[in-house]
Design a protein around this nucleic acid. Structure first.
Ligand SMILES: NC(=O)c1ccc[n+]([C@@H]2O[C@H](COP(=O)([O-])OP(=O)(O)OC[C@H]3O[C@@H](n4cnc5c(N)ncnc54)[C@H](O)[C@@H]3O)[C@@H](O)[C@H]2O)c1
Ligand SMILES: NC(=O)c1ccc[n+]([C@@H]2O[C@H](COP(=O)([O-])OP(=O)(O)OC[C@H]3O[C@@H](n4cnc5c(N)ncnc54)[C@H](O)[C@@H]3O)[C@@H](O)[C@H]2O)c1
Lengths: 211, 211
DNA sequence: AACCAATCGTTACAATCTTCACGATTAAAT
DNA sequence: ATTTAATCGTGAAGATTGTAACGATTGGTT
């Protein structure tokens, strides 16, 4: 399989989202310039990204919205992403309640918590299981990735449970760095560091480009 | 002021967090190798990052934990980050309840919502105000950055309100790209794209490096 | 005192990512 | 049919980021 960089892939999903919106509005064509205005990226970057996948634009008119969307999806959207969640606390509940994680593209299929008062309940249709059921539930639900929303003290242990269950992708919200076997991908979403580095940004540079 | 890349700065905050932990445990010295094991970054990268700020390590022993922390903080931590939150929904409430955002380093000082049933309440000590009070409250609380946790339809309008109030930094959780005046920095935290691109990762590459 | 082993700091190198410059293409206008 | 202007696609240049190699330093050991 051909390799595209993470950054290109992330932007491709952004293009798809924009295209979905425009298709909804019955817009037939979109130019790299218009995509640039909407996304904040440069038009060249957009054309370059798209051209990595193949030639699909029409000179003088731009890209056919539906065609481009189908084109990009064929490369990046393999199937529905099925995720399980660890830690049904404040953040975990917000995630469970988010409609955007119960779509055809992304679906949270189960949640786990060590707190027995939460086990057995359902949030937004997603059942909360005890930790002893992890392996069974993951296999039965054919989950592909896991979300860690437990306290950071527990995150490494849970990462171990996740990888032992065979999952190859982890989104980690805990402010900790996980050690995982080779072949497992981890995305750390570290909000404190986002806040702090944004603040640094503001104070260090007075002349800045866009986002 | 000297310029360090965003990535270096983000890593510096990570180093500080690790150092805080080690200082708590009375550890006097730490080597780039040990920092590497903990963080998942390479030892070379760590030494390089630190050396950009200056010479502080001791050959043969490593870095003095307290000294290094003080050193890094002097460069990156200007003062407490004071943030305001827009949208006290599922995600917004999780953020308000998070103790990590009520520390000396990061403090959420006010929240806003258009829902009058939420206005007037307090969550974790943070008062929720009506939208008409934005400007006044932002100035009085001397907030420096804003968090957008409203539906994406409202995000652009709110970004306008934020920048009109003089804030120069925005953390945006809505799946939308904001248009902001020059000089304003935006960090988009787009969880759906994180999920999707992680999933792509898993399926495209079978031989991968660490996180 | 001399040596050794661990560790830092730095310069050179490599890889990745973005921007630039410009030719190719095509719809529309005349 | 020719011209024109908008737009795409892309190789080359440039910028940024990460890696490697290795000398410099120093605490401990013999
Ligand atoms: N809430 C936020 O806005 C926010 C922001 C940044 C980072 N985080 C991080 O996200 C994580 C979750 O935050 P939160 O605010 O939801 O915390 P929380 O305390 O509200 O919830 C944690 C949940 O994890 C469960 N849990 C604890 N140990 C467990 C274990 N070993 N196995 C299974 N479940 C376990 C608890 O029962 C609880 O339900 C934390 O690591 C936190 O640092 C949260
Ligand atoms: N919850 C999640 O896990 C999650 C995940 C990814 C992205 N997001 C994004 O984060 C944002 C918030 O998500 P949520 O789940 O908290 O949504 P939510 O619907 O629970 O909360 C939205 C809040 O914003 C308030 N609001 C709406 N319009 C407003 C306006 N014009 N001015 C002020 N306040 C306004 C509402 O009253 C409500 O309290 C959304 O853009 C969502 O797409 C959320």
């Amino acid at each position: 399989m051909k390799k595209f960089s993470n950054k290109t892939i992330a932007r491709a999903f952004l293009y798809i989202r924009i295209l979905d919106d425009r298709i909804q509005n019955k817009q037939k064509y979109i130019s790299s310039q218009e995509l640039s205005d909407i996304s904040g990226l440069t038009d060249v970057q957009i054309r370059k990204d798209i051209s990595l996948f193949g030639k699909v634009g029409k000179p003088r008119v731009g890209y056919d919205t539906k065609e481009l969307r189908g084109f990009l999806e064929a490369f990046v959207l393999k199937s529905t992403v099925r995720a399980v969640l660890f830690g049904v606390g404040n953040l975990g509940q917000a995630i469970l309640k988010y409609p955007g994680f119960q779509t055809e593209k992304i679906k949270i299929v189960a949640a786990f918590d060590k707190d027995s008062r939460k086990v057995g309940k359902k949030i937004n249709g997603v059942a909360i299981y005890a930790m002893k059921d992890v392996s069974r539930v993951i296999h039965r639900s054919r989950a592909q990735i896991a979300i860690i929303a437990t306290p950071s003290e527990a995150s490494q242990e849970i990462a171990g449970i996740i990888t032992k269950s065979g999952l190859k992708g982890i989104i980690n919200f805990a402010p900790s760095s996980l050690v995982v076997p080779k072949g497992v991908s981890v995305r750390n979403i570290d909000l404190s560091i986002e806040f702090l580095s944004l603040f640094y940004d503001i104070h260090s540079s007075r002349k800045r480009r866009k986002s």
